[in-house]
Design a protein around this nucleic acid. Sequence first.
DNA 1: TAGATTGTTAATCGATTAACAATC
DNA 2: TAGATTGTTAATCGATTAACAATC
Lengths: 215, 215
Amino acid sequence: MKSFDIPIPTLKRLPLYYQHLLIARERGEKVMSSTDLGEAIGSAPEQVRKDLSFLSGQGKSRVGYDIDKLISIIETYLGLMLHKEAVIIGAGNLGHALALYPGFSQYGLKIIALFDNDAKKIGEKVGKLKVLHVDDLADYIKNQSIRIAILTTPPESARQIAPQLVNSGIKAIWNFSTAHLVVPEDVLVRNVDLSLELGVISHYISGLDRISLIK
Amino acid sequence: MKSFDIPIPTLKRLPLYYQHLLIARERGEKVMSSTDLGEAIGSAPEQVRKDLSFLSGQGKSRVGYDIDKLISIIETYLGLMLHKEAVIIGAGNLGHALALYPGFSQYGLKIIALFDNDAKKIGEKVGKLKVLHVDDLADYIKNQSIRIAILTTPPESARQIAPQLVNSGIKAIWNFSTAHLVVPEDVLVRNVDLSLELGVISHYISGLDRISLIK
DNA sequence: TAGATTGTTAATCGATTAACAATC
DNA sequence: TAGATTGTTAATCGATTAACAATC
């Protein structure tokens, strides 16, 4: 799963550029310099130019980047226009929030089903979606040719379900559980453990206390 | 805000180690090697040893790390035992999910209030918390000496509120909005933009399509 | 003692930043 | 033309990985 032709950090900045370009276009702007784009997302202009050079830079000296053109280049490069369907496994609070998260559609991601193993939740409505039983998950994925799964279950369930997902044809797992998933090479796993940020935040806050003790 | 004595990636792995050590302790285990710890979180043993060396390595050759000791070292280092109170601004789906997220208390984080500017939401119950009006935010933070704020509002609101938070004494902002916040040096901002992962996922999925087209 | 495992130094890798020639 | 801005190469920085001596 390593054959990226572009650094992951760059890949994560592209959506940011994209958002700001959309806003600028909305405002009627036509071109944008690397300096302005960088400022908008909090990066240096060199960073922006470097990032954009991966997608065959299209800027014009003295002018900047053509907003329309750059938008469509990023769309093509990331495959944003592609219709990407995903399922959520785990209909808890986080699953709900993600199912209803408004930002995803901008990137072509559409949540089309939620699964849970809790009988009480089956049939429950989340937005326009109904919660389905996890027993039907494998068939559903196969029949609908889903390739993206979002995991918001407890870690043990996540570990159990991951192989099923892979067997059913899932190619990308967005893992919100704390479980470390082991999957074949050709399956992308992106881990988002919200708690990890607490390592940084907690250390920072407790550092403040330490300083104030010394003073 | 740069004066970390330890790499951020390490800081984010410490909570992972911590979790696995807790589990191991639960199982009655006494010591754990860097190899085992690494395996649990998907890192190399060298990585583990390197990380732990930042907190004055406490392992024993031929034996491994004393689980009890390491747990308490990490707790001290990250300030996990510190009682850290936080407010959430934005009582939408994500705000709800975070308010009810079970994983935070393990790290000493306690959400004690939710704020919103939508009159319809004020007074609404989220778990045991009531949604308060954002007009009362500054006073609340000052009176309760809150230092951590979690932002789950739309980007424009986030940008507006950030200076207020800083003025009221907030020292760490966990920013789930897409806004790029500009704050004084001594305020920590941790950005979590869920959409950014979609850059990586979308690119990967569309890469699969590209390959299958070629074949 | 012999061997496993740590802690640390050095080598590698990769991303960011700086510099600057090319260009519009 | 002069000057601003790109695109790219080189230098720097920082984190990961490898190697190995120290140690229990």
